[in-house]
Design a protein around this nucleic acid. Structure first.
Lengths: 342, 342
DNA sequence: CTGAAAGCGCTAACAC
DNA sequence: GTGTTAGCGCTTTCAG
C-alpha cells in the first residue's frame, strides 16, 4: 500500500483535539465515549477515508481472528466445495481465512504452516498432502498448543480433532453394491496407504470382497495418488498388463475421470468394456457420459463442521482432546454399475 | 495462538547476551553480523522453536508481501483454475494471498475490500460480482493509489489494469460457427449487461447474427446471471414461452450446465431437441454427454498474468496507467453444434 | 561488528 | 468522559 500517506488514529485525534485513545474507543463504540464525540469521530473518519490498521491492532491484541487453511488442491470438486463452505462459515463468524495450497507437496505444506504460524493465525485447518508421512511438525504444533483441526485427509493419534467422511463404510458399501449387481472381478485404483483415506477406502474394498467370499487379487489393486493423472496411469497399468477387471472402484472422483480419459483414448467403452464406481462425486456428475455410481461425500458439511469445531476450540479455550467426527456418506446411483446379467 | 508464551526476539537475545537488533539482523542474514553469531542465533532459534512474528515485522516495514484476492465464486471451473494458478504464481514470487469470496454479493465484496485494505495488503486482485455497478469504492482506491488489477470481470475506465478473455471475438466466432453449421434461430442466455463479460459476449453474439443477415430476435435473448441456476431458469423461460430456439449460446459454462439440467428434467435431448454452445469450458467437458462445443478460456494464464502485472506494479512503483490485456481464445469442438442438414 | 533509541499504529490499564 | 502511560515484537537509523 504505497499511498501518499496512510491516515492514522493520531491524525484524526489531532484534528479533533483529543487523544488517540478517545478516537480508538469511539471507533470501537466503547461505552466510555459520549455519543457526540462518537459522531464527530465517525464524521471525520468518513471524510478522511481512514482505514484502521488491523496489523497494529492484531499486534497489540495478540490475536488476529484469522484462520490458516492448508489444502492439497483447489481444482478438485471436493475441495472446491469444502473451501466455499469454509469461507461462508468464516464470514458468518467474522473470521478471515488465509488459504494456502500445498499442491500435494510436503515441503510446500510445511512452509505454509510455518508462514501461517508466523502470521499468528488463531488456528489451523488442515487437509494433508498425499505424501505427508512425517508428523514431526504436527507434534510440534501440539506442543505449542496451536488449535488445529484436520479434515478429510487427517492424521490421527496426535491429539487433534479430525473430521472425515466414513471412508471405510462408504467403500465397503459401494463395493458390496457392485458385487450385488453381479460383478466379481473388481479392481481398485487406490491412493497411498499412508493416508487415512487411501487406507480406509482400500480396507472397505477388501472387506466387501472377503465378505462375499471373493479372494482379493493383488494384481487388481493399484496404489497411487488421488488425481486425474493417477487414475489415467492406473488404468493404463491394468490395460498394459492385460489384466482388466470387470469393474474398477476409483478412490476419488478425479481418479475416475482419469479412468474415463484412458478408456476414451483406448477406444474402449464404459460400461461395455469396463465399469467404474468411485468414492466422491461432483455436482456435474449427472451430466457425465456415463454418470458415475459412487459414494456421495458431504464436502460442504465437512468444511463447515471442521471450521466450527476449530472456532470453538479457539474461543472456548477448552483443553483440546482428540475427537474424531465421521460424517455419514451414501451411495448415489448413476449410469455405471448396472445389474450385470450373468 | 494461545500457546503458553510465544518466544520473541528479546528472549533469544537475552539468552545470548546480545541485543535484539543483533538477533534480528542475524535472522535476516544481514552482512553486519559475524557468521559465528549467526550460527549461535540460528541454533538457539531451532532449539526454542522460535517463529518470527510477521505481524510485528509488517507493522514496522509498512508492507506485507501479501495480495488481496476478491472473486465471486470458487466452485466454477474458470475461477478454480484461475485461483490455483494465482496461488502457484504467488508462491514463486514469495507473496502470500488472502482470498475472499463475494458470492456474487456486492456488500460482501465491499466489506472484503475494506478488510483487505485494513490488513494492509500490498495490492488487490479483483474479479467483480455480477451485480457490481457502483464504482465509488474503486474510485476511492484509485485516489489512494492502491495497486489493483482487475481480471475477467473488470471495470474499465477507472484507470486500473484489466485482463480479460477476448469475450466479444470469442462469442462472435462461436456464433458464427454455429451459423455455418446451419443454425439460424440462435438464442442467447446471457449475463447482466452491466458486466463487461455479459455485455461483450452479447455483442459478439449480435454481431455474428447481423453479419449473417439474421435479424436478432429479442425474444431469443435472456439476460440473467452466470450460474447453473441462471442457465436453468433461462432455459425454462424459453420453454414456457414456447419459444425454443434451435441453438442456445450460453454465456458461461455453468449456464450451459443449467441448460443441461433443465433439458434433462423436461425429458428433452441435446442436440436432438435443442443444441448448445458456450463461452468457457471445463477440464471435464470431454466427458459430458454430450460434450459442449464452446470457447476455450485460458483461465490459468489469465490468473498468472493478472498477478504478475500486479506485482510489477507494486514493486516497480511505476505510475499506474490503465492497460488492458486481452487474452486470445479459441473454439474447442465437442459433440454439440454438429452440421445441421436442412 | 554490535547496540541504544525511536517508532510502526493501536489498545489495555489506570488515572484524572 | 477523556487522557496518560506503557507496551505488542520487530526494524531502522545512527552511534560506538
Amino acid at each position: 500500500m504505497k499511498s501518499k500517506k496512510q491516515i492514522t488514529l493520531a491524525d484524526i485525534a489531532k484534528k479533533l483535539n483529543v487523544s488517540k485513545v478517545t478516537v480508538s474507543k469511539a471507533l470501537r463504540n466503547h461505552s466510555d465515549i459520549s455519543s457526540e464525540m462518537k459522531k464527530k469521530v465517525q464524521d471525520l473518519v468518513d471524510e478522511l477515508g481512514y482505514t484502521p490498521n488491523i496489523i497494529a491492532r492484531n499486534l497489540s491484541a495478540k490475536k488476529t481472528r484469522t484462520i490458516g487453511l492448508v489444502i492439497p488442491k483447489i481444482n478438485h470438486h471436493f475441495f472446491a466445495e469444502a473451501i466455499e463452505s469454509i469461507y461462508t462459515t468464516a464470514q458468518k463468524s467474522n473470521y478471515e481465512i488465509i488459504m494456502t495450497v500445498s499442491q500435494e507437496n510436503v515441503d510446500h505444506e510445511q512452509k505454509h504452516i510455518r508462514s501461517l504460524l508466523a502470521m499468528r493465525v488463531d488456528g489451523l485447518l488442515i487437509s494433508v498432502s498425499e505424501n505427508t508421512t512425517d508428523t514431526e511438525i504436527f507434534k510440534d504444533l501440539k506442543k505449542r498448543h496451536v488449535p488445529l483441526v484436520f479434515f478429510d485427509r487427517v492424521i490421527e493419534g496426535l491429539g487433534f480433532n479430525c473430521i472425515t467422511s466414513d471412508d471405510e463404510k462408504g467403500s465397503y458399501e459401494i463395493v458390496k453394491y457392485a458385487i450385488e449387481q453381479g460383478y466379481r472381478k473388481i479392481g481398485h485404483i487406490g491412493g497411498y496407504n499412508n493416508t487415512n483415506i487411501g487406507k480406509a477406502r482400500c480396507e472397505g474394498y477388501l472387506r466387501a470382497l472377503k465378505e462375499a467370499g471373493i479372494e482379493p487379487d493383488p494384481a487388481c489393486l493399484i496404489c497411487g495418488g488421488f488425481s486425474v493423472n493417477d487414475g489415467y496411469r492406473g488404468f493404463m497399468n491394468f490395460y498394459n498388463n492385460k489384466n482388466l477387471p470387470q469393474m474398477i472402484f476409483a478412490v476419488t472422483f478425479p481418479v475416475a475421470l482419469g479412468i474415463y480419459r484412458a478408456v476414451e483414448e483406448l477406444g474402449l467403452n464404459i460400461p461395455r468394456d469396463i465399469d467404474v464406481v468411485s468414492f466422491g462425486d461432483a455436482s456435474y456428475n449427472q451430466f457425465l457420459n456415463p454418470s458415475i455410481t459412487g459414494v456421495h461425500q458431504p464436502a460442504a458439511e465437512i468444511g463447515k463442521a471442521a471450521l466450527e469445531l476449530l472456532i470453538d476450540q479457539i474461543e472456548e479455550k477448552e483443553p483440546i482432546e482428540e475427537k474424531k467426527i465421521v460424517m455419514p456418506v451414501k451411495i448415489s446411483l448413476g449410469q455405471t454399475c448396472i445389474k450385470k446379467e450373468k
